[in-house]
């Protein structure tokens, strides 16, 4: 049960992020909601890769003296998470840049008032 805790936490984070995006009108808060979803997914990926007592994936082969039944950790989930974090940073930065531009044009961050494109 306790081992599954990270999965629950990550899904709660995703849910909170979605809830934020559906209930807040401020553009910055929308971006924060998106980052929350992203953190949840990243946490999910990292916790997938955790192996209790495993050998850290900084070696190519398990070092001398480590019993063979101790597993090597696959570095793939960590690599995935790093990539996802980098991508997430890029998208968040672009998103916030658009928020700045929109604020300069409209003088508001209320998503309910930024509705020139509709219908």
């Amino acid at each position: 049960m306790i081992g599954n805790m990270p999965f629950f936490v990550s899904m709660i984070l995703v849910g909170l992020g979605l809830w934020t995006m559906m209930t807040r009108r401020n553009l910055i808060k929308l971006a924060i909601g998106l980052v929350l979803v992203e953190s949840g997914v990243n946490l999910f990926l990292v916790s997938l890769g955790y192996v209790r007592g495993g050998v850290a994936p900084i070696y190519t082969f398990a070092p001398e003296g480590v019993p063979t039944e101790i597993p090597m950790v696959m570095p793939t989930p960590q690599a995935l998470t790093l990539t996802a974090i980098v991508i997430g940073m890029a998208t968040t930065a672009l998103l916030l840049a658009f928020v700045v531009v929109i604020y300069r044009h409209r003088g508001t961050l209320d998503a309910g008032k930024i509705r020139e494109l509709r219908g």
């Binding site: 979605l18 995006m21 559906m22 209930t23 807040r24 009108r25 553009l27 929308l30 998503a111 309910g112 930024i114 509705r115 020139e116 494109l117 509709r118 219908g119």
Partner: peptide, 10 residues
């Protein structure tokens, strides 16, 4: 089609 981004997400 409100153009309200929160609606898009919803």
């Amino acid at each position: 089609h409100t153009g309200f981004v929160v609606d898009y997400v919803t």
